[in-house]
């Protein structure tokens, strides 16, 4: 189960950071930062909930 959760986290993170990079290259730096924060949050929050 933990492995699967980590896998999901990994995929979503790759996706989010990818999107963040696209935004950075595009016109919205603020958006890129926001997406990056979301990406970081996705890594941190599981430690308080599912992986507790």
């Amino acid at each position: 189960m933990t492995i699967i959760i980590w896998l999901v986290i990994l995929i979503v993170n790759a996706y989010t950071i990818g999107f963040s990079i696209t935004l950075w290259k595009g016109d919205s730096k603020v958006g890129a930062i926001a997406m990056f924060v979301v990406a970081v949050a996705i890594v941190i929050t599981p430690f308080f909930s599912v992986l507790r």
């Binding site: 699967i4 995929i11 790759a14 990818g18 696209t22």
Partner: peptide, 23 residues
Amino acid sequence: MTKQKSLFKMLCLLSFLLLLLSG
């Protein structure tokens, strides 16, 4: 945007399959 799109599709499929596997 195609990159995101295909990645998103992959993500959907993968997470769904994983959910199925672990049911």
